[in-house]
């Protein structure tokens, strides 16, 4: 399953004018997506809100200048991502070596089991390094290709693929551990 938003320069794009109405229209069109993005990155409601509002506040006050040189989506994505990375720079993810790869969940899982799964998935995301998480969120939530992700992060495509690969493996290993504990 891959979610694509594909709205960078299409429906959500509004005219680059300094008017308040343009900003309001943009936020109404894209605000919920950015709330999801910020929360998927940070995993913390307060931090997500703070990061997103800080970026949108800058955007609101410099709407004309920003939109003259950059698509609003590109600006918000880049700024939110870097704000998240800045706040997490001091932290480091911990490798979690595991030996068991999780089984595929049953399609007829009960609701309680689903909640447990969801928590496990969230916890598995939490073990990713900030850059790994950013790459995987950009790839799996935004549906961006590696070149675009590299542009967002300001790194090479190779670095993006490295983060993606290591992050994916770390995520998988964490789920294996959880599955082993439950089993």
């Amino acid at each position: 399953m891959r979610t694509t938003r594909g709205g960078d320069a299409t429906a959500a794009r509004v005219n680059a004018t300094p008017h308040d109405g343009d900003f309001t229209a943009y936020v109404r069109a894209r605000g919920r997506d950015w709330e999801r993005y910020a929360y998927a990155l940070t995993g913390d409601p307060h931090q997500a809100q703070d990061v997103l509002q800080t970026v949108l506040l800058k955007m609101y006050r410099r709407w004309r200048r920003i939109t003259e040189i950059e698509a609003p989506d590109a600006y918000v994505r880049r700024m939110v991502t870097h704000a998240y990375l800045d706040t997490r720079r001091a932290r480091s993810a911990t490798e979690v070596p595991v030996a068991v790869v999780p089984d595929t969940p049953s399609p007829e899982i009960d609701p309680a089991e689903r909640v447990v799964d969801r928590d496990e998935l969230a916890q598995a995301l939490a073990v990713l390094s900030p850059h790994q998480r950013a790459v995987l969120v950009l790839r799996h939530l935004d549906g961006l290709d590696d070149e675009t992700i590299a542009a967002v992060l300001g790194c090479s495509v190779g670095t993006v693929r490295s983060h993606a690969s290591r992050g994916r493996e770390r995520f998988r290993l964490r789920l294996s551990t959880d599955q082993g504990d439950r089993g």
Binding site: M1, E35, A40, L57, L136
Partner: peptide, 26 residues
């Protein structure tokens, strides 16, 4: 694993707190 990643990230995003008047807040 890729599907699980997509699901995990989508599930998390879906639980994002929502401000219905985000533009007004800004």
């Amino acid at each position: 694993t890729d599907d699980l990643l997509t699901r995990a990230i989508a599930d998390l995003g879906a639980r994002a707190p929502h401000d219905p008047d985000l533009a007004g807040t800004i």
